[in-house]
Nucleic acid binder design. Structure first.
Lengths: 363, 363
DNA sequence: CTGAAAGCGCTAACAA
DNA sequence: TTGTTAGCGCTTTCAG
């Protein structure tokens, strides 16, 4: 995908690319204006800094005239209170860190919506980090979190990143705690129940050769109870033999799903249904299958996981296991609030999100 | 309400007032564990606080043994350095605020991806705010920004919110500066060029009765050069009479587009093409039109704006004016960096993003 | 209504 | 290698 192409003739923005190359130090711009402090404003207006503070903070114990004069001077001088100095004194400025895998995967904006809304209700700020599910990046972000926020709400794949996050002194909530111990705060999405309902639906419709398109990122994550394992388990319970090559790893994207589907078809054209790691992969797979001449669901049925609204846009609309992603985000923030309130990790009430089978038309 | 002027740019009282209205204290959890400080760790380990600082910050001038001992104690005591105290001393911790209209509109995650990436390269944190394009919310968020971040990168619709944002002392970049003065830092998306190319494409294909589905949020925004005005302008230039009822306001969502399309069709079934405010509205409209029995593009053609990747999922794939949203986010951060580096607002180089017509199949 | 003093928790610069 | 001394910029007492 060549979206960001600054060399494109019509992109005036090109020069910025060079500007960045220019090589200035990344976070300390040169020529930085020194900060205007409250003392300078006080001096300029001939009052004490307390009086300036009163004006800025709209306190009542101040002459309205003085107040206005100070405000004007402050404005003119370019004064803005330092959040650090303020935060040091007041103990109620809370910032949480939200760690997601990929903003471009519609799953995460929905979770984010829930987190932002819940945080806003509490007057909290939300700093967002994107990991791309890379192990190195996850570890890096966890480190960052310890320095920058009061609590973390995170979607983490890699075992060591999770270990690091939960071992520290930072209140930490996992957006998908999977099969981890009860004492690890977080929301559990009942993938097992979901996968079971989904696969049994397919089996009930007569499917036996059911392929699985897995997220390749999980291959290295050492996570317990992956969707792939659940697939194997449920198939096994129903006595349906699984050819190991029915399982194809896919990059977690529409294109990834398409590519994996093509690989699958070239080896096993006889599968009658596809159980995908998620909707993105399912959509890509279904699109490619149709492009390759298969009829959906007659020749091959597709079952997604997540319940993204874009599943309704494709043809035929995608049957999927819907997760209430917004609620997921809200619950995580509520748990973070409890932790921040002093509740110990093992007192946090258990929270489970149950995926719902939504039958549309692809399976 | 307040005595004097809480709307004054340097006055931060506005949001405190809201907090008080809330009744319960929203951000101070009860039972809060008191913060463990560096002095406590120093005392517990029998060293000076400076030595603790050295251990925590991984400095070299310290006995590895002492270091480990301190680290263990710190960990056991639940010590975590205060970002406020740190920020006060070190001047290189930068946080920017990203203000978007709606996380659930795929346009914004793409912009966000660009912003996050550019910010990360600089080691900056990004706090995200969602306004829903509500005027009240935009004003509130702008206030918040003044308190909480070092620079703002914002998508703002309402004139007064923009005025407030740019009047203050905070480096501020608009993600869509529209037709505003050159001295207002921000990126200009050339909607006029885009709209012209798009409409001329439709006209060139023989369309004369071209409807416009506008974003209803703009009705109250007092923004210059809206897409609606451009539509009127270009149609006028081509001597094509426009029935004012061809313009339907829509909520900025797929459902909004669908509803608006239904309204449009009930009054003007004879339109042969729809120029939508954006892809979301276009997709909703097209879906509904097809559900109502119209063939696309034979009975009615659809042209979107934004170039969202979900436009490729619908049938027929959506013809659209593609905006490089990721690049938009990146450029905005680069401008913020210049501002933060001390460059004055009118020195910021002009940046324009040129929408590209992508002909798929809906028009 | 206004000011002076006392820290919030940390790190940089210098001494030891 | 470690400790001491100064602040960073602000708000919260408590006096005037």
């Amino acid at each position: 995908m060549a979206l960001a192409d600054p060399s494109h003739p019509t992109c005036t923005a090109a020069r910025y690319a060079e500007g960045v190359q220019g090589g200035y130090s990344p976070n300390v711009p040169t020529n930085r204006k020194p900060r205007v402090t409250i003392d300078q404003v006080a001096q300029a207006t001939g009052v004490s800094r307390q009086t300036v503070s009163r004006a800025i903070n709209n306190k009542t114990e101040i002459d309205p005239e003085t107040r206005q004069r100070i405000l004007d001077a402050a404005q003119a001088m370019g004064y803005r209170p330092s959040r650090f100095a303020r935060g040091l004194v007041r103990q109620d400025l809370i910032t949480i860190g939200l760690v997601i895998a990929d903003v471009l995967n519609p799953f995460f904006p929905e979770v984010t919506a829930g987190v932002l809304e819940a945080a806003e209700r509490r007057g909290w700020q939300v700093v967002v980090y994107n990991t791309g599910s890379e192990r190195r990046k996850e570890l890096e972000v966890v480190d960052m979190l310890f320095d920058q926020v009061d609590a973390g709400v995170a979607f983490l794949l890699h075992h060591d990143a999770i270990a690091k996050a939960t071992a520290g002194n930072l209140p930490f909530v996992l957006l998908d705690k999977g099969g981890r111990a009860p004492a690890v705060p977080g929301v559990r999405i009942d993938f097992e129940g979901g996968a079971r309902r989904g696969l049994e639906y397919l089996i009930g419709r007569g499917h036996r050769r059911i392929a699985m398109l897995d997220d390749e990122a999980y291959l290295s994550a050492e996570a317990p109870n992956t969707r792939r394992e659940l697939y194997l388990k449920v198939m096994g319970e129903h006595g349906i033999p699984v050819d190991i090559n029915w399982i194809q790893p896919a990059h977690n994207s529409i294109d990834g799903g398409a590519a994996a589907m093509e690989r699958l078809l070239s080896a096993h054209r006889d599968v009658t249904a596809v159980f995908a790691y998620n909707d993105l992969i399912a959509i890509g797979a279904q699109l490619r299958a149709r492009a390759l001449g298969l009829r959906v669901p007659e020749d091959c049925a597709f079952l997604g996981f997540d319940g993204l609204s874009i599943g309704e846009l494709v043809e035929p609309p995608l049957t999927t296991l819907h997760i209430d992603k917004r609620r997921l985000g809200e619950i995580a923030v509520e748990q973070a609030a409890l932790l921040l309130g002093g509740m110990s990790e093992d007192e946090i009430p258990e929270a489970v999100i149950e995926p719902q089978l939504i039958v549309r038309a692809s399976a």
